[in-house]
Simulated assay, not measured.
Amino acid sequence: FIEDTKAGLELRNFYFNRDYREDPGQSKQEEWGQGFLLRVESGYTEGTVGFGVDALALQGVKLYSSEETAGSGLMPSAYGNEAPDDWSSFGLTGKAKVSETVLKVGTLQFKNPAIGTSDSRLLPQTMQGAQIISKEIKGLTLDAGYANRINHRDSTNNQVMAVNTGGRRGIAADAGTTNESDDFRFLGGSYQVTKDLTATYYYSNLEDLYKQHTYNLVHVLPISEGQSLKTDLRYSRSKDDGSSNVDNKALGAMVTYSLSGHSFGLGYQKMSGDTGYAYLAGATDPYLVNYVQINDFANEDEKSWQARYDFNFASIGIPGLTFMTRYITGDNFERANGTEGKEWERDMDIGYTFQEGALKNLNVKWRNATARNNFNRATNVDENRLIVSYTIPLM
Rank of each mutant, 00 (worst) to 15 (best):
D182K: 12
G71T: 03
K270T: 03
Y279R: 02
S228D: 13
G188F: 08
T284A: 14
K230L: 12
G33Y: 00
G43M: 03
D196V: 14
Q34D: 07
A336K: 07
F375E: 05
S260A: 14
L259Y: 15
M75A: 12
K135R: 14
L63S: 09
R326E: 05
G166K: 12
G166H: 08
D310T: 12
D154N: 15
Y291K: 13
G351I: 07
V160W: 02
L38T: 01
R149L: 13
G116S: 14
N363E: 08
K195L: 09
G43K: 02
G351F: 03
G71D: 08
G129K: 06
L229F: 13
N374F: 07
T101R: 11
L92I: 13
S181I: 00
L58D: 01
G91P: 08
L251G: 05
K211N: 09
E300D: 05
G226V: 11
L206W: 07
S42Q: 02
T165D: 03
N290C: 11
R367M: 14
S260V: 06
A336N: 10
K135F: 03
A253N: 12
D301A: 04
F323N: 05
L58R: 06
G47A: 10
T322P: 00
L122C: 06
T156E: 12
F333H: 03
H262S: 08
S190A: 11
L187D: 04
N13W: 01
Q34C: 03
R21N: 09
T329R: 13
D247R: 07
M395E: 03
L321P: 10
K135G: 03
D296M: 11
D285L: 13
A96M: 15
N158H: 10
Y352N: 11
I150G: 00
A253H: 05
A314P: 08
Q227V: 12
S134R: 07
S88P: 02
A130R: 10
